[in-house]
Design a protein around this nucleic acid. Structure first.
Ligand SMILES: NC(=O)c1ccc[n+]([C@@H]2O[C@H](COP(=O)([O-])OP(=O)(O)OC[C@H]3O[C@@H](n4cnc5c(N)ncnc54)[C@H](O)[C@@H]3O)[C@@H](O)[C@H]2O)c1
Ligand SMILES: NC(=O)c1ccc[n+]([C@@H]2O[C@H](COP(=O)([O-])OP(=O)(O)OC[C@H]3O[C@@H](n4cnc5c(N)ncnc54)[C@H](O)[C@@H]3O)[C@@H](O)[C@H]2O)c1
Lengths: 226, 226
DNA sequence: ACGCTCTTGTGAACAAATGCACAAAGTCGC
DNA sequence: GCGACTTTGTGCATTTGTTCACAAGAGCGT
């Protein structure tokens, strides 16, 4: 058993970040009743190179068959296990504005190893409102919803100004992983995992590349003229 | 001027991905009327190490003053320029469901160098609906909205099943940068930039770390017992 | 049984990113 | 002016990630 866990222990971050993409591609193959897939094909559907895919999978163990490829069902299981998706993780969403509602009504959670267990907002006007099986609760309920020591994922969908306060409340209640949608950096204590999803960052990165493109076009014109 | 552009030309990807975060931290300092900031302070607000921040900024040029720090306004300008945010980029959003509406009504675009110029959906029921100054238009309007050669950013907020089709339409219309919110990998031709924002990927990465944590706790218990 | 074909898994080379540590270059008090 | 002090910018070592290229292994037809 120690071998098994040791194998999981040092999966590179870059690999972990790509595993969900492989899982999704495998899911599409599953519904198409495809039983087996080569690294080349799977890599193409996931949008990576086949060498990268094979190296990534080699970190989980040796689950392919040389000359044949990977068994779709078995690989799906192995990746799910590596990611810790063999059981559902509870998720609480804080902030029931435009984004929070969209997230709450988004069905993609349940099928992927997560279960939204609570929706919270500090606005008394929103508390009590029903959204897809769940009732919006006041912030005070947080401590009774989260059991310290038991893993729980917190999602922040409040305005940037409240994000740090909400993060502090989540951490105090015992949440150890936070996904932040607010457009601000938040500080969390050591031991709490934090990731952010940020629209404007992504757009700005795209803008950078667009600008590079137009700059190089301009340069080529100048070079042609000079 | 060639020197200037050469300096911008090879900013590492990892640096580009962090620049928006610095810009945001600088924005907060600006509203607080802070005029100057050290790498240590700015790095802390942006959630990175000061060495990383300095190395990142050094790729843009030498805009700090030794012994003092960085001028907030000037650094803001330089980063904006490096990212290509000195003028607004047009953005079209396709898919006016839960997420698309949240994005459309999100004010964060305008202040950050972007302007939503069109909302599109294929559902005739939604076409014609007004959302914040804009009317939802049918997909056929795409070609008349985008001018090939002029940069435009396309945002995909349709279900996964339609994402590839929508991407193809956007590319055909002349869009050269795409931000994909749909939970699927899409293929775009060489020369088109594509980035994705994906909730379930992020949650799965958090789940991995939670699982690592519980695995190591279990290990420690075993070790203590053995 | 054997050789042919196919595809995995991985060592080794390469590239990118990070972190360290300090010289260089500025400010400020005197 | 000058020396003490502060903070930047960067060369270098280290770590992390990617790509290449191919040996090892599995299936299949004969
Ligand atoms: N809407 C989008 O498309 C979008 C896109 C990208 C990022 N974001 C970010 O997501 C966040 C939410 O966006 P939105 O459009 O849903 O905002 P919103 O204003 O519609 O909703 C925010 C909600 O958070 C609640 N709230 C505020 N402070 C709180 C606190 N301290 N504790 C608990 N609840 C609190 C408010 O009552 C409100 O219901 C913002 O930070 C925004 O920048 C939104
Ligand atoms: N809602 C969320 O919180 C959330 C979170 C993460 C990811 N996502 C992803 O974002 C996407 C959209 O989610 P949603 O909840 O808004 O879905 P939705 O079903 O509410 O809306 C989808 C919209 O896209 C339109 N559409 C469908 N096919 C189209 C096509 N070919 N061309 C143009 N328009 C088309 C539909 O008419 C509909 O209005 C999904 O892929 C989902 O996985 C959503």
């Amino acid at each position: 058993m120690s071998v098994d866990q040791a194998a999981k222990r040092d999966i590179p971050d870059a690999t972990v970040a790509r595993l969900p993409g492989y899982l999704r591609a495998l899911g599409q193959l599953t519904v198409q009743d495809v039983l087996s897939v080569s690294s080349e094909e799977l890599a193409h559907s996931a949008g990576v190179s086949s060498a990268k895919l094979r190296k990534d999978l080699s970190h989980l163990g040796s689950y392919g068959v040389r000359g044949v490829g990977y068994d779709v069902a078995h690989l799906t299981y192995q990746i799910s296990r590596a990611l810790g998706l063999t059981h559902d993780w509870p998720v609480v969403i804080v902030g029931m504005g435009n984004l929070g509602r969209a997230l709450a009504s988004y069905g993609g959670f349940a099928t992927k190893g997560f279960k939204v267990v609570a929706l919270l907002d500090r606005d008394p006007q929103l508390v009590g409102e029903r959204l897809d099986e769940l009732t919006v609760q006041p912030m005070g309920e947080l401590v009774s919803l989260v059991t310290p020591g038991e893993a729980c994922i917190g999602v922040i969908a409040t305005p940037a100004a409240s994000a740090q306060d909400v993060a502090d409340l989540l951490v105090a209640a015992g949440v150890s992983s936070i996904l932040n949608f607010a457009a601000t950096a938040i500080q969390v204590p050591e031991g709490v995992h934090m990731r952010k999803v940020d629209l404007s960052t992504e757009l700005q990165i795209l803008a950078f590349h667009e600008q590079q493109r137009s700059a190089s076009v301009a340069d080529e014109l100048l070079e042609g003229a000079g």
